[in-house]
Design a binder for these strands. Structure first.
Lengths: 186, 186
DNA sequence: TTATAATTTTGACATAAATCAAAAAGTAAC
DNA sequence: GTTACTTTTTGATTTATGTCAAAATTATAA
């Protein structure tokens, strides 16, 4: 699926707006290990993954903490930085060779102004993100490490299969030793 | 401040849309202890607190867990249920005698359709909510109980002063015994 | 293929926070 | 003001998960 198709599934958008988006999409291919964003920088791009996998992480006491994974057909950006225009704390790296479609924040602002009907898609995407995040917060707050791992496995098995253990562990809020033991014990 | 004023601070909205909102606002006063929403029900209202304090909580193994507090000038709703139209897991109660302005989800849907420029305010509100929630997730995942308490005290001292200990503790993801000890030790 | 580096697993031990229980303090009702 | 109820504090003990360290496995590159 392409970014354009994905957006059309979310909200009805005029032909003109779609054309505008299409002419502004930038296609990028990056090798595994590439850093698309470094902490301390402003994230001025909104990504859509067509192939491969990204992850965002930040440092907490010099330890890497995974903030999210983005697989095929997922949107991805450093939301705080992208929305506020301020320097962020996130790093975005490619966990595999990855192909992305990219929109700049300028393009998006222009899109919202020129085609106000696209605000709806923006709102719906944010609402969806919020609900996901809320669920994650609840899990982290009140499920055991093992429960959280099993929930992730059920909901996003692809992440478990494709991401390195350390990245998964810090996403779940546990150490990799603990995750390794959880995996071992069953 | 009123709901109308708050919305106008977020995005520019036409006179007509404002009128539409105004005629649909419902003013409600509730006594301390009132349950505005019970889990298992669909939350079909969007609240704005003009006086007093609400909190949302859900049950995890028959224990109450606070999901959020809403003080004066805060919006409040059971976001998942309100957005999805499905039965939710949250309860919303008044922690004090509280005055609220209320919009139904039907009104809001109508508003978005009739006045598409209001989508922008909706999007911006959601973006802001998301950023707040992300920050909270990061804190819960990687700060100690004490650090989390101190962060809350710095950011929302009103909550610490006005909410009962048990509600604050479960909001922070700790037991009330632990919170009591944190308070005691300094 | 072998050498080197990165990732994952295993082990021993430490610790923050939970649990269970009861006392103390605060609030509301009669 | 006394009684009953709720909330908060204090104490003793347990437990899930973290930390530190090293071994085993797997991936990468020369």
């Amino acid at each position: 699926m392409s970014l354009l198709q994905q957006i059309q599934q979310i909200a009805k958008i005029s032909k003109e707006a779609l054309d505008f988006i299409e002419t502004h999409i930038e296609n990028v291919e990056v090798k595994k290990g590439t850093l698309l964003l470094r902490n301390g920088k402003v994230c001025s791009n909104f990504y859509f993954v067509t192939k491969g996998m990204l992850r965002s992480y930040y440092f907490s006491d010099s330890k890497e903490v995974t903030n999210w994974f983005a697989l095929e057909n997922d949107f991805a950006t450093s939301i705080f930085s992208f929305l506020s225009g301020k320097a962020g704390y996130e790093n975005i790296e490619a966990l595999e060779d990855t192909t992305i479609e990219m929109l700049s924040s300028n393009t998006l602002q222009e899109l919202y102004l020129k085609f106000p009907e696209t605000e709806r898609a923006g709102r719906l995407i944010m609402e969806n993100y919020y609900i996901q995040l809320e669920e994650r917060l609840i899990n982290i707050q009140f499920k055991s490490a093992k429960d959280r791992y099993e929930l992730l496995m059920k909901k996003y098995p692809e992440i478990i299969l494709r991401a390195p253990l350390g990245a998964i562990a810090s996403y779940l809020g546990i150490t990799q030793e603990t995750l390794s033991r959880i995996r071992g014990s069953k």
